[in-house]
Computed example of a mutant assay.
Amino acid sequence: MKDFDSNYAHTVYFWLNNPDSKEGCKAFEVSLRKFLDNSAYAKTKFIGVPPRASREVVDGSFTYSLIVTFESADAQQEYQKEAPHLLFIEESSKLWNKVIVYDSKAIIE
């Protein structure tokens, strides 16, 4: 994983249709890794799964999380249109039933 770029963080949570399907999870992971390996804009590329929650405030209902950082909001906009991202959506959107995205920019002091 490359260094975290605090200029722009893109955090995505995915809920797969069948989170217990090893084949579905494998297909999702392969497609996601292929996309991230070929993205010209994504810097930090973190793929996660929920840990066992030890507190009530922790939402572990998702199947996968993705944290991607960018050098700028413009780079994030270009990422949305790039071929590897569009191919990932085409290949994998049938595997999920819910996606939530949280974008944030660093506080500038």
Results as ranks from 00 to 15, higher is better:
residue 75 A to Y: 02
residue 42 A to K: 12
residue 63 T to W: 13
residue 6 S to T: 13
residue 20 D to K: 15
residue 106 A to F: 02
residue 15 W to V: 12
residue 71 E to K: 13
residue 66 L to W: 04
residue 81 K to M: 08
residue 12 V to A: 07
residue 69 T to M: 10
residue 63 T to D: 12
residue 38 N to I: 03
residue 22 K to M: 06
residue 56 E to S: 12
residue 70 F to E: 12
residue 28 F to V: 03
residue 29 E to A: 02
residue 52 R to D: 12
residue 51 P to S: 09
residue 9 A to F: 05
residue 80 Q to G: 10
residue 49 V to D: 01
residue 104 S to G: 14
residue 81 K to W: 04
residue 75 A to Q: 13
residue 95 L to F: 06
residue 20 D to C: 05
residue 48 G to L: 12
residue 71 E to G: 15
residue 72 S to H: 01
residue 35 F to E: 12
residue 72 S to T: 06
residue 68 V to R: 03
residue 50 P to W: 04
residue 29 E to K: 07
residue 21 S to W: 01
residue 48 G to A: 14
residue 53 A to F: 00
residue 51 P to R: 12
residue 80 Q to C: 03
residue 18 N to R: 04
residue 85 H to C: 05
residue 24 G to P: 00
residue 26 K to M: 01
residue 96 W to I: 14
residue 89 I to G: 02
residue 18 N to Q: 05
residue 72 S to L: 07
residue 96 W to K: 10
residue 44 T to D: 09
residue 59 D to N: 12
residue 1 M to I: 08
residue 2 K to H: 09
residue 87 L to R: 14
residue 50 P to R: 03
residue 10 H to V: 09
residue 79 Y to F: 09
residue 62 F to L: 07
residue 98 K to D: 10
residue 8 Y to F: 15
residue 13 Y to W: 14
residue 98 K to M: 09
residue 36 L to Y: 02
residue 94 K to F: 04
residue 34 K to M: 04
residue 75 A to M: 09
residue 93 S to F: 00
residue 17 N to M: 06
residue 3 D to A: 13
residue 57 V to L: 01
residue 98 K to S: 08
residue 59 D to M: 04
residue 105 K to G: 10
residue 7 N to V: 05
residue 10 H to E: 12
residue 32 L to H: 07
residue 109 E to I: 01
residue 22 K to D: 14
residue 90 E to P: 01
residue 53 A to T: 11
residue 29 E to Q: 08
residue 14 F to W: 06
residue 62 F to P: 10
residue 103 D to S: 05
residue 31 S to E: 09
residue 74 D to P: 01
residue 108 I to V: 10
residue 2 K to N: 09
residue 14 F to G: 04
residue 107 I to M: 10
residue 51 P to C: 10
residue 49 V to A: 11
residue 95 L to V: 07
residue 60 G to Q: 08
residue 1 M to C: 07
residue 54 S to E: 07
residue 103 D to F: 00
residue 85 H to K: 06
residue 38 N to R: 08
residue 13 Y to K: 14
residue 27 A to R: 12
residue 72 S to R: 09
residue 48 G to M: 11
residue 26 K to E: 06
residue 1 M to G: 11
residue 85 H to W: 06
